[in-house]
Structure formats: C-alpha cells, structure tokens
Write a protein that binds this DNA or RNA. Structure first.
Ligand code: SF4
Ligand code: SF4
Lengths: 135, 135
DNA sequence: ATATTACAGACTCGTAAAGTCTTTTATTAT
DNA sequence: ATAATAAAAGACTTTACGAGTCTGTAATAT
C-alpha cells in the first residue's frame, strides 16, 4: 500500500529546510535555486514553502533580491515541526466509530506513534548540520 | 494530507484478528459474521483475510462449516505483523535518488520509524486480550 | 448432488496527491 | 514613476491508488 508513506511534499520540505540552513542566511534564497536542486517545478515548491512560511519557520521577501530564509530561532526547528507543517498533525490511525479512550487498539496505535514522534521531536535541522560538519 | 495514514484495510485486519482471538477457535468463523460486525462487505473483507492467510497467521477452511481461525502460535502475533501483512514492509520514507546509507535525513527518518515499530512489535493481540480480561 | 464457503480476478468509483498555468500582490532598483 | 523581480493565491489538469463491487471458480461437508 502507498498510503502509509510520507508525501513527496514532506521530502521537498526537509531538503529545502536543510538547504536554507546551510546557505548561511544573510541574503534570502530564491525558489528557483531551491527548485532546481531538487528537480521540482518552482511553482510547486512555492506552494510548499508557503506552508512553511505560515508556520513561521521560514521568512519570505517579495521583490528583487527577495526569496526565502530561515526565521530567527530556526535552530530549534525539529523534524516533527516540518512534518507537521506539511502532513498535518492528525494521527496515523483513526477509526470512524470512535469508542472513547478506553479502546485498547487505539491506545496501542497511538502510543507507538508517539514513540516515533518523540524521536522526531528531538532531531533538529541544526543537529543534522552539526553532525555533518564534525565528521 | 491523507497519505501518512493507515489504510482502512489495516483497521479491518486488526479488528478481525481481535475477533478471531476472542471467539475461542474450536470452530472457524465465517466471513459473513466478521463482516457484519465491522459493517463492511464480506467480499472485500475476504480479500483482506486472504492476505492474513498467506502470511500464515490465519487458517482458512472452505466448504460448509468452513471459515477462518487463528493458526497455532497466534499468541505471538504482534501488531506489527498484522500491519506488515496489509501495508507491506517498506519504509514510510523513501526518496528516489537514494544516496546510500550515509544520508543523515534518511537516518533520522528510519530510526524514528524504528522506534514505532519496536513498540508495535511488542504489542500482541494476546496481550490485548489479557489486558481486557484482567480489568 | 447440492449447499456452503473461501479464493481469484476483472472491474468501477472517488478522492487526493502531484504538478501546471495564470493572475495578483508586494518589493526593490533605475 | 516605472519597470523588473519574486512570492502568493487560486483555478485547473493529470494520475494513481485505495476502497469497494461483481462474477465466477475451487474446495469441502452433508
Ligand atoms: S474498538 Fe477501538 S479501534 Fe475499533 S472502532 Fe472502536 S475505538 Fe476504533
Ligand atoms: S540526501 Fe538523503 S534523503 Fe535526500 S535524496 Fe539523498 S538520500 Fe534521499
């Protein structure tokens, strides 16, 4: 099945965030540059970037010499933040007939999901870069 | 996004397994009964059950008084086993251009996923029942 | 022989991701 | 002012696949 998968948009978002973090952001980066690196159309990537902007993790500047850059405090942006921005915050598991919190099936599914998110919450883009540069 | 979600089939499979485990399986259970409990068409549920049969966790019997029952050793069947049977074993995250195992993005995504699977591997249908009956 | 039940495969339907195209808005440079 | 640049918004197309239906075949008990 193809459902239990991250969307391509999430993949683009992660790579874009990494790219922005690496290009030490005195001057913003245009979507063209970001797009060609990932071999994706600029207009499509633009839509993804707008989501990140609305979540406050990316700043955008219109006009000449405009583009995108990370907002201050970006060092604390986690993988989970980025994933949430694209995929949304809803659970992997949901059943129509929701029989309250005493349901053990849901309990198992949700706690297992929480383990993954715990890890994703700790991993940051900044941490990734630190690991890259120390090797 | 709707991609990062368990399929309905997985939901059906989990409930079916739980039902089979509860109806202490001297005689097999027909798909009709299993289907009406979950308000799903018998033919569709049949396809899901066939997957579970092929994975060896469910036994099927054709003909009159036939149906489905759990195979011996079912007590060790984990949530992850059932999920794998339906969703497949492939990772949540995959990128086309696969830059080997030194990629840190993949590493983060895969290890976080592994945390979830670790939990799902420990949780069994039998354990669920035990927890239900002791309360 | 007949009823019952699982299995197999072709098929339809609906929805959402993925991507394109066009227009509008905002900002800078000249 | 005006032109050039770049993001934002929105309508639109394409495509893929989950979800479900329908029909027929194979297996087994009475
Ligand atoms: S039993 Fe649990 S998982 Fe199943 S439908 Fe009810 S709440 Fe959902
Ligand atoms: S950098 Fe990592 S995640 Fe990105 S395409 Fe290469 S292997 Fe995949």
């Amino acid at each position: 099945m193809k459902t239990l998968k991250y969307s391509k948009a999430t993949n683009y978002a992660l790579h874009t965030m990494l790219h922005l973090a690496l290009s030490n952001s005195t001057k913003p980066v245009g979507v063209q540059i970001l797009a060609e690196q990932q071999k994706v159309s600029p207009t499509y990537l633009s839509k993804i970037l707008t989501k990140l902007v609305k979540e406050g993790m990316v700043a955008s500047a219109s006009g000449a010499n405009g583009g995108y850059s990370l907002t201050k405090g970006w060092e604390s942006i986690s993988f989970l933040d980025i994933i949430y921005a694209i995929e949304g915050k809803s659970s992997l598991f949901d059943c129509d007939l929701n029989h309250g919190p005493e349901c053990l099936i849901q309990k198992v599914m949700l706690t297992s999901e929480e383990k993954m998110e715990e890890e994703l919450r700790q991993q940051t883009i900044a941490g990734l870069i630190a690991e890259m540069t120390t090797t």
